[in-house]
Computed example of a mutant assay.
Amino acid sequence: MPDSSSPRIFLAHASEDKTAVIKLYDRLQQQGYQPWLDKKDLIPGQKWREEIPKAIRNSDIFIACLSQRSVAKQGYVQREFRMALNVCADKPPGTIYLIPLRLDDCQIPELRQEEYGINLADYHWLDYFESDGFEQLVRAIQHQFPKAQPELEQDFQVDLGSGIKLEMVFIPGGEFMMGSPDDEVDRFESEGPQHQVHVPAFYIGKYPVTQRQWEVVAQLAKVNIDLKHKPSHFQGDNRPVESVDWFEAAEFCQRLSQYTRHTYRLPSEAEWEYACRAGTKTPYAFGNHLSAAQANFYRHYSGTTKVGRFPANQFGLHDMHGNVYEWCIDHWHGNYAGAPNDTRAWLTGGDDEYFVIRGGSWFHSLWHCRSAYRFNNTPSSRFNYFGFRVVCVVPRT
């Protein structure tokens, strides 16, 4: 349930976008915020011309939901948003946070509140249609209302049913130097230039997704594509699932999100490296060297091994080095020139026909397992050393 001290959020929209905005309303409410939407909050018999301005006046955040259809709708922007901007303008400066939110690649309209000089196009917009759009929105809310951020748990488990749990580990926020220094042994040019990255707190799977976890989620309702129940080459309930491509890993995350009503996805490359390093600056989380007693690599074990067999890093994560390569969200870029300085997935520029994979595998040489090592493949590729783990970024309530 939303906390009474959490931000109150007014969702302005056109009727054409009602379905998308109702989903946004539900997600905001699930994360502990207090959204207001006419469809959800107007009581039969109330006068909407009175209640909507009242709801805006009582809000801390005003989100203008825009799409190509709504912007093109005759009279929509002039009528609905002008009323909203008039109410916003009457509030003391700094008491309401205005966010234009694009549901698709639409043009932000020129709409002014003449007396106070408010223009919707003057505000930096948020692209909700991007893969991390909701997380961008939550970051914006947390930036403006840091004290309203819901309390993060330290760790939690997702009950998948049939006695199967998915263990998630809390990763504290911080900053780290991403990439490898010029003098690191076995370094590649793609690992530079090193750059400082700011990392908000998030959750990540304690282990790569196992075959038993995969099998349970693969039986949940389909979101976009079908999933094989037993895709792996090396069979074993507690071995990591492998021989899955990027699209199938993403489908797993979407089904898990639909089932739990929380947002799960693949990690960004920055999140993955931060979690792997666990505060270290050495080539491996365990120091300058990695032994066969610490990780499964270079065919020492003739295939995958059960998750958790090897020691955890300082964050409590297992198999960040070796066992299976792990898919990330990001498109491939040949180096870090122009990379984000935060943990957003890097989806602009680069080569969108290739996606990042990290961590090395049971099959590959030691240097593939270094914390900074980057590899890539086409998203439809399946190998018996490709797996993944999941991330949950949005605060749980």
Rank of each mutant, 00 (worst) to 15 (best):
D105A: 15
S365L: 14
I43P: 14
S371M: 05
Q258G: 15
L160M: 08
P200F: 05
D132I: 07
P93I: 10
T305M: 14
A249H: 05
R79D: 13
K147F: 04
E189K: 13
M1A: 12
S162I: 04
H289T: 13
D319N: 12
L101Q: 02
K165I: 06
E115P: 00
E269D: 15
R299S: 14
R370T: 04
Q74T: 12
Q113V: 02
N86M: 06
C65D: 05
E191D: 12
N376P: 04
D3Y: 08
H13Y: 13
I22H: 08
D159R: 05
P200N: 11
F156T: 08
T378N: 04
A14C: 10
V244R: 01
D127Y: 03
Y116Q: 06
E167P: 03
G279H: 10
L220G: 04
T260R: 11
D155H: 15
H195N: 09
D17Y: 06
K230V: 02
R299L: 15
Q46I: 06
F81I: 01
G161C: 06
C369W: 07
M83T: 10
W125F: 13
Q314N: 15
V223E: 00
Y76N: 06
V223R: 02
D17R: 09
P311Q: 09
D105H: 12
G133C: 12
Y336A: 02
P200R: 07
D41R: 12
D186T: 13
D105G: 07
C253D: 06
C106H: 06
I9D: 00
L120G: 00
Y259G: 03
V169T: 14
I63L: 03
F383A: 08
A285Q: 02
H321S: 01
P172D: 08
R57D: 08
D104Q: 05
R344N: 11
E326D: 14
Q31T: 08
W214L: 00
F297K: 05
T348K: 13
W362G: 03
A249N: 03
L101A: 02
G287N: 09
N86D: 13
S291E: 11
F310T: 05
S291T: 15
V71F: 03
F310C: 01
V217W: 03
K306S: 15
